[in-house]
Amino acid sequence: MPQLDTSTWFITILSMVITLFFVFQLKVSKHSFPENPELKLATASKPITPWEEKWTKIYFPLSLLLQ
């Protein structure tokens, strides 16, 4: 049974990593980024919900006393 020849794996994996690095660099270099990013102040607006105005209680049928 022949053995698997792994002598070329190192150069194959190394060339693949280098190629992926260059492809990624080309993709990133073609992307246009804003020159002066400005900080936007996020104001947290609380949503108005009707159930916060009044007291409510939920009764579950299984929690009621048996009569």
Rank of each mutant, 00 (worst) to 15 (best):
F24S: 15
W55K: 15
F24K: 05
T43S: 09
E35Q: 07
V23I: 07
I13F: 07
A44R: 12
E53W: 06
A44V: 13
P47Y: 03
P2H: 00
L66I: 04
Y59T: 03
F60V: 02
T12C: 05
P61Y: 12
F33S: 00
E38L: 10
F10Y: 04
P37V: 03
K57R: 13
Q67G: 12
P61A: 12
T19L: 13
P2R: 03
L62R: 12
P61K: 14
Y59E: 06
E38P: 00
I13P: 02
F22C: 00
T8V: 08
T8M: 04
P2I: 00
F10P: 01
I11R: 14
L26P: 05
L26T: 05
K40C: 04
E35I: 12
Q3V: 11
K46Q: 11
K40S: 04
S29D: 10
I58M: 08
S15T: 05
K57T: 11
E53A: 15
D5I: 00
L62G: 06
S32H: 08
L26V: 07
A44T: 07
A42W: 14
N36K: 11
W9V: 08
F33Y: 09
T49Y: 03
I58D: 04
K40L: 06
K27V: 12
A42I: 14
T19F: 04
L39N: 13
W9S: 01
F60Q: 09
I48T: 06
W9G: 01
L66F: 11
V23N: 02
I13K: 09
I13L: 09
V28E: 11
M1N: 07
F60G: 01
I18L: 12
S15Y: 00
L39H: 12
T56Y: 15
L66N: 10
I48R: 13
E35H: 06
K54D: 06
